[in-house]
């Protein structure tokens, strides 16, 4: 199977969907002539032209709102936010318009929109550029939130997101863009709302999404090598809809859960998962649920320290050892 980068996997997804459906267009700051701030859309403007790949001025509220309106009319806009951190400038458009228009119209309207871009810390760009807002958007019924960890998932989920008839917030990661992985040639789709067990195990479930999946896999490897502990790694892949069944199945098998989450701990994604596990699998637990999140402060700039602010394999291992 060909090995390509996460960035290339996304690029391939765009190219295939642009080819497949006239109504798909890409829009955002620097996506066309500049080839994308992170080169995710490289070559697409050259290939598909001005109509399909469109550079915008720096007007997130304006162009995201435009995307919502165009989606209401049946187009399939794929809107890039250079960083998801900039979504706050367009928050009203995403929450009130994309998120609520179907409901407030009693189901007369739908909004087949993808809003995408990187949503991660760890690149030493300070607090304003390092937000992980998946919990904010997943908190809005009407929006979907997808956070792929691997090139394979990125491509399959992006293609599905573009074809989905509801608004999808697609959260990528600048630290993953260069990661390599096997991606089959030709068409495949990954449904939104289906988790993936990235490593089987029997002693503890590490439940994660996005880059935290890779942190968990690294921790699982060391737990096996150094402590003879068998950790299962569940990759949520999407936050809303959420694959509750796979989470509960894993916890019922291992009886222990450590939630790994680059979100902030307070009201973050892992808070919701912890609640869900105690509601539905309390009797299966042999130990309290543990969480490893970003340390609860704005993202620090200092490069070696920011590494420690995000979940690390060491912190995951400590939490696992506390319950195993």
């Amino acid at each position: 199977m060909p090995v390509i980068t996460y960035r290339q996997a996304l690029n391939d997804a765009f190219a295939e969907e642009l080819e497949r459906d006239e109504n798909v267009f890409l829009m955002g700051e620097e996506v066309a002539e500049y080839n994308g701030a992170y080169k995710v859309t490289e070559g697409l403007w050259k290939r598909f032209g001005d109509k399909r790949v469109i550079d915008t001025p720096i007007s997130e509220a304006g162009f995201i709102g435009l995307g919502v309106g165009a989606a209401m009319m049946g187009l399939r806009p794929v809107m890039e936010l250079m960083f998801w951190s900039f979504a706050y400038v367009a928050y009203d458009q995403i929450i009130n318009n994309a998120g609520c228009v179907r409901y407030m119209s009693g189901g007369l309207i739908n909004c087949p929109l993808v809003i995408r871009g990187p949503a991660n810390g760890g690149t030493n760009v300070g607090a304003t550029h390092s937000h992980t807002p998946e919990n904010f958007f997943a908190n809005t019924p009407g929006l979907k939130v997808v956070c792929p960890a691997t090139p394979y998932d990125a491509k399959g989920l992006m293609k599905t997101a573009i074809r989905d008839n509801d608004p999808v917030c697609f959260m990528e990661n600048t630290l993953l863009y260069g990661d390599q992985g096997e991606v089959p040639e030709g068409e495949y789709l990954i449904p939104i709302g289906v988790a993936d067990v990235k490593r089987e195990g029997t002693d503890v479930s590490l439940i994660a999404h996005g880059r935290a999946v890779l942190t968990s896999l690294a921790a699982a490897h060391r737990l096996h090598e150094e402590f003879n502990i068998s950790a299962e790694v569940v990759d949520l892949r999407s936050i809303r809809p959420l694959d509750e069944q796979t989470i509960l199945d894993s916890v019922r098998k291992t009886h222990r859960a450590v939630l790994v989450d680059e979100n902030k701990p307070f009201c973050g994604v892992s808070s919701q998962i912890a609640t869900m596990i105690q509601e539905h699998a309390f009797d299966d637990l042999d130990a309290p649920i543990q969480r490893v999140c970003s340390l609860d402060a704005p993202a620090i700039y200092s490069p070696p320290i920011e590494k420690q602010q995000l979940p690390t394999a060491d912190r995951v291992i400590q939490k696992v050892l506390a319950v195993c």
Partner: peptide
């Protein structure tokens, strides 16, 4: 004013189509 970019998007879609 939340509707003002939506109106823009509706008109954009007309031109696009």
């Amino acid at each position: 004013a939340g509707q003002t970019p939506l109106g823009l998007g509706i008109a954009f879609a007309l031109k696009y189509k």
